[in-house]
Structures are given as C-alpha cells and as structure tokens.
Simulated assay, not measured.
Amino acid sequence: MTLVKFANGHNKRAVNPFFSDVFDSLINDSSIIGRGPAVNIAETENEFHIELAVPGLKKEDFKISLDKNVLSVAADKKVENVEEGKKYSKREYSYNSFSRSFTLPESADHAKIEADYTDGILTLNVPKKEEAKIQSREITIK
C-alpha cells in the first residue's frame, strides 16, 4: 500500500497543476459566479452615477426599490422558445434573474433618484443633497 499525501492548502498544485488553476479561477473569479451584472460607480461634484451592464432586457423587466439607504435593482426575465417538427416538440427555457443592492451615503438625495435604460445599460443617477455638494470659494488673506 502506498501513502499519498494531499496538500491541505500548502501546495494545492500537488495533485494536478492544470486542474487546480482552472478550478481556482472559476471559484475565485467573482465576476463569473453569483455577482450579477457588471457595475460602474462614479461620483461627481453633484451626484453619484451607477451603471449596470444588462443587455437583452426591457424596462419592464426591472424592479428598482429604495429601503432606507439601500438602493436595490432586480430583474427577472423568462424566455421560451418553441420549435415544432413533424412528430416532436422541442422546448427550451431560459430564466435570467439578478439582484444587486447598493448602500447610499447620507449625502444622497433619495427623493430625486432617476433611472434610464438605453442600449443595454441601466443608469441610475443619485443626486447629492445641497449641503453635501462641494462648495468652492476663494479665501482672502487678512
């Protein structure tokens, strides 16, 4: 009988280096598993911009809600393709859904949030409250 020592985190590539690389990249790549659509978040002097890449959906597929300081974006889409042949019926179902939540800062003006969906990009504009906007002025020296 031969004893084979398997690595417990010290050297994961001991069994099969190729398998470890592929498996680790699939498990650890958060853009592939469980994250939903890609998101860009930017801040300007007057507002926050949130952009989600969600091609193939319609405006009606989205549900955008605000609960306290948490802005949630969700979508559900069910697609059914039916092709009928001579003696059989072929059906393919596709069901896509996601949900993303964003915690808004205290400086966000919840009453003026706007959303737009154009060319597969959902854009959310979150204005800042007046008192939170950067106010610049020149200061004179006495």
Results as ranks from 00 to 15, higher is better:
119 D>A: 12
107 S>Y: 13
87 K>M: 00
142 K>M: 01
115 A>P: 05
54 V>L: 07
55 P>G: 05
79 V>A: 14
45 E>S: 12
122 L>D: 04
105 P>A: 10
19 F>G: 02
131 E>R: 13
119 D>R: 10
41 I>C: 06
47 E>G: 03
10 H>V: 13
29 D>S: 13
4 V>M: 08
54 V>C: 11
119 D>C: 01
64 I>K: 07
30 S>G: 02
95 Y>T: 13
45 E>W: 05
64 I>C: 04
5 K>M: 12
32 I>E: 01
87 K>I: 00
125 N>C: 02
128 K>Y: 08
44 T>P: 04
125 N>G: 03
94 S>C: 06
111 A>L: 04
32 I>V: 10
124 L>C: 07
69 N>F: 02
95 Y>F: 15
17 P>D: 10
49 H>P: 00
19 F>C: 09
90 K>M: 08
26 L>Y: 01
118 T>V: 10
92 E>D: 03
134 I>A: 13
65 S>H: 00
95 Y>E: 15
29 D>A: 07
90 K>N: 09
59 K>Y: 13
116 D>Y: 00
61 D>F: 03
13 R>A: 09
137 R>W: 02
138 E>W: 15
121 I>P: 03
46 N>P: 02
98 F>C: 13
6 F>D: 01
74 A>L: 00
96 N>W: 09
25 S>M: 02
109 D>I: 01
61 D>A: 03
